[in-house]
């Protein structure tokens, strides 16, 4: 048998390369980790949405997903643990022209940063928040997060987790988000489409992406590798667009309801601000030009 060789023609490149800082490759993520898959979907969404990439800023917190900002060839900000959303809030308000995307993990956005999440959603701040939910603190070695399901073994729950968890999509809806969806890293097409959709939607948009952590979460729980996670996502997922978010709870190995749950039009923070100031001050109101001051 003659061995087959894969010839890469000169000048060929992966279609996502222009969106990545290729001089930073290889990335730090483990084999089988789902974060790279979500980044792939995100670059597809950027490509398909035809947004002006110079006007897209990406903000991350700390953690494995927090590293996404560092690989995206956009104006990108790797901030502090839990505070990507308030950083993004300041950025958006100072220059509303920018499309500000927050890309971070479950621990970052919902435990240490939970307060910021609910308040940004309440304000309907025009931010696109993508949460890669691997149900654990991976960067620090697989400790419990506020989404770690009951009975799961973690570094800080050696006898099994037992705390009730946040249902992120229900939380987002209750707090006031304009758009709420959940997918897994198995649902790459749908995820890309959702990401593209939120790039054109005003207001606070939230996408939860279930993503495997084979190195810590799965290994510790004897749940196999990345491929096994895909099989689980495929077998356990039910697409139910518009499902009541309250029914979309997650568990260790149960059903995963995915889909777009909320898509509503509400005035965003800046629209509300302008309306109120115009009502109160009339012609005395001067539209913000915060970013032009220097």
């Amino acid at each position: 048998m003659t061995p087959t060789t894969l010839e890469i023609p000169d000048g060929a490149q992966n279609p996502v390369e222009p969106f990545l800082r290729m001089d930073r490759m290889p990335h730090i993520w483990c084999p089988g980790c789902g974060i790279g898959t979500t980044v792939n979907c995100f670059t597809r969404a950027l490509l398909d949405s035809k947004v002006n990439l110079d006007k897209v800023a990406i903000v991350s917190g700390i953690g494995c997903t927090g590293r996404v900002a560092g690989y995206a060839r956009l104006d990108s900000f790797h901030t502090t643990h839990g505070r990507a959303i308030p950083f993004a809030t300041g950025m958006k308000l100072a220059n509303p022209e920018l499309q500000v995307v927050v890309y971070s993990g479950d621990g970052d956005l919902f435990a240490i940063g939970g307060n910021h999440f609910i308040h940004a959603a309440r304000r309907n701040m025009d931010l696109k928040v993508i949460c890669v939910n691997n149900m654990t603190y991976a960067m620090t070695g697989g400790q419990s997060s506020s989404t770690t399901p009951a009975h799961v073994i973690s570094a800080t729950a050696p006898y099994g987790a037992f705390e009730p968890t946040f249902n992120l999509v229900a939380l987002a809806e209750a707090a006031g988000a304009s758009y709420v969806a959940r997918w897994t890293t198995y649902h790459v097409k749908q995820l890309s489409r959702s990401m593209e959709e939120v790039l054109h939607k005003k207001g606070f948009c939230f996408i939860e992406v279930l993503s495997p952590c084979p190195t810590l979460y799965q290994r510790r729980n004897k749940m196999g590798d990345g491929l096994d996670a895909m099989k689980y996502y495929k077998q356990a997922s039910k697409i139910r667009n518009g499902a009541p978010t309250g029914e979309c709870t997650l568990s260790k190995s149960g059903e995963i309801v995915v889909g777009k749950f909320v898509d509503r039009d509400r005035p965003d923070y800046l629209e509300l601000l302008r309306a109120q100031m115009t009502e109160a001050l009339g012609e005395r109101y001067v539209e913000s030009e915060a970013s032009c001051s220097c």
Binding site: A57, V59, D75, F77, T79, T80, G82, R83, I85, P86, F87, A88, T89, G90, M91, K92, L93, A94, N95, L98, N115, H116, H119, L273, V286, E287, S288, E289, A290, S291, C292, S293, C294
Partner: peptide, 25 residues
């Protein structure tokens, strides 16, 4: 012509200003 926002805590306030600075303010 500008923005004041009352944030949810001082952690938020102290980093929102940094987002604004990088946006040009």
């Amino acid at each position: 012509g500008g923005i004041f926002i009352q944030m949810e805590d001082e952690l938020a306030a102290s980093i929102a200003i940094q987002g604004a600075v990088w946006a040009g303010a």
